[in-house]
Design a protein around this nucleic acid. Structure first.
Lengths: 114, 114
DNA sequence: GGTTATGGCTAGCATTGCTACTCATAGGCG
DNA sequence: CGCCTATGAGTAGCAATGCTAGCCATAACC
């Protein structure tokens, strides 16, 4: 996958993943990789700053939790605004992907590309 | 449509459009708007630099043509490399959109987002 | 004559995801 | 015990790319 392909769509993916239960960066990464059939194998340098952005934007809220004795996780949940954003992003993705597909995958009658 | 949504996909759209006959910037814009159902209403500041990039990359070749008396158009055709790129981009788009959709539009059993 | 459509172009910006690290705890294994 | 891997989080700086906001010219229409 080209590096730029994700641009503008990552937020939606993260919101959708977080919506699937209280999640944290590391787990989100695994879930994204699995659910995407391996397409999205995102570096942590992509995940964490993005979560940060979403939190700053008020779409998710993070909370430190303890794992074991001195291990910590930052768990995120969607805010109401985040939930609305997710709905909007899904709709937006549908429109976008439909549009791209209709341009890209269109059958052309004169498509005997000489 | 968010500004960044297109990133990484514009080249494919342009290649596909140029593949639909010898086209030039202005016409490409119209075709994209029409075929996308209005989703892609791209400013010329997006189109022309992008065509330039594609030409520099050897995926299309441009040629000035005269329209009327002293009007000019830069008409583009796909090169063999461009045609190969288009095939690759279509495949890549399919994989990408499938992946995004499976993350975004997935039905979750526990989706009663409390 | 003035407005709109056709046609092309550019400098500089803003956003965003990636690269390439750092740091720490925990568990497994020779 | 010492090393390697997995888990978990983070950052500075970069590169790419599409957009903003302009510019210019010809042609057509009223």
């Amino acid at each position: 996958m080209k590096a730029e392909a994700l641009k503008g769509h990552l937020d939606a993916l993260l919101l959708a993943t977080v919506d699937g239960g209280a999640e944290y960066g590391y787990a989100i990464r695994e879930v994204l990789r699995t659910e995407s059939g391996g397409e999205f194998d995102l570096p942590t340098g992509t995940i964490y700053p993005a979560l940060y952005r979403l939190e700053r934007g008020g779409l998710i809220v993070g909370q430190w939790t303890k794992v074991g004795v001195r291990r910590r996780r930052r768990c995120y949940r969607l805010t109401p605004a985040g939930r609305r954003a997710l709905v909007a992003q899904r709709a937006s993705w549908s429109k976008f992907s439909t549009a791209v597909s209709s341009v890209l995958l269109q059958e052309r009658t004169w498509s005997t590309t000489t």
